[in-house]
Structures are given as structure tokens and as C-alpha cells.
Amino acid sequence: MMYINIKTRLLNLKCTLNKSQMLGILGPSGIGKTTLLRAIANLEKADGEIIVDNEVWLNDKISLPVQNRSIGFVFQDFALFPNMSVLENIAYASSKEKATHLLEAFNIIHLKDKYPNKLSGGERQRVAIARAIAREPKLLLMDEPFSALDRSTKHFIQDKIKQLSQEQGFYTIFIAHDIGDIKRLSDFIFLVEDNKVINTDEFEKESINI
């Protein structure tokens, strides 16, 4: 179980996730969604409490450095290492075998020896997601992870993430601007403008009410 109650300059998030559950963050740009995600990773300062599988990441006294938080982070600009091939990027925090396995799962094994500057945006995005999952994190954080993917690839990747999170049992928090993506993947939705976390099923009802 993961408990988060975190305050950043603009946003507060309070939620509890069970293993393999996903939370989607929905809201207009410039409202501080990225900062919130970075705060969970401790790339930004924040107050509050984070407990992951009974391990305290953040409270009044403790704040684990980013290196010690078992996370996978998918950056908006992908942040692939230009000096490494696709395989090396993914193996950076895991192993060649694990990396090869993920490349096959994501259907991009043919890219393994290419360098990031030779990849399309969609390919980079898939590599970035694979890299974040490769290290077998407890919490996967993704900032707009599907923006550069076409529809069919997007669904394929989303299904893969879902499947891997079931298998490995990691929690997922991600930002998306497409309501479809969020409904398709997440168990909960953080509606930033209303500052509340709701069940995805409730969202259906709410939208009907509106």
C-alpha cells in the first residue's frame, strides 16, 4: 500500500493506492502538475508524508534522497542519454537481459543499437518508459508519457504498462491531458482544479451530471 499526502507550492495531493493501482493527474497546463510529480521523486522540495510499502520516504523528520526512492521517472523531454545506445540507456539501471526483454515487450527491439538522436519522438517515448520500468521501481512516475504516440501504439503501450504493473506490482502516477488515456489506465483520477481524488467510475457519473 502507498500513502501520499504531499504539499507543493501550488498543489496538495492526498491519496492511497493499492499494489498495481494507477492514479492519473488531470488538469490544465501551468497549474503545477509537473512540480507535484517531481516533488514525489524529491527532485523538488516538498512537505508532507509519503509511505511506500511501509517504507517512509517523507515525513517531518525523514526525506529520502531521490536516489534512495525506488522510482521510475518518465520525463516530458524523455531525458534519454545521448551518449548511450537504446539498449545501454535501458540497461543503465538494470541489466542487458532485462533491457532486451523490455525492448521485445515494447516491440522496439530493432532499435536497440540506435542512438537517441536517430529516433523519432514516439520511439524515444517508448524507450523512456521502458527505461523507467526496467529498474523494477516500486512507483512509476510519468509526465505526459503518451503525447508523441499514435493511437494504436499508445493503446499497445498502455496495455503493456498495465500488464507489467500487474506482474511487478508497482504503483503508477502519471500526468495526461487526454481524458481517454486516463480513463483507459487509471483506477483513480486527481482532478487538479477541484483538488480532489475520485474513482474513475465516479468520473463517468460526474461527467454525465455535467
Binding site: F73, A79, Y92, A132, R135
Partner: peptide
């Protein structure tokens, strides 16, 4: 890019 360095940190390095 700062994110490259941060990516390495998030990967536990």
C-alpha cells in the same frame, strides 16, 4: 539538459 542528470538520479545512481 538538467533532466539528463535528474534521470540518472531517479534511476538510483
Amino acid at each position: 539538459p538538467k533532466s539528463l542528470i535528474e534521470a540518472s538520479y531517479t534511476l538510483g545512481k
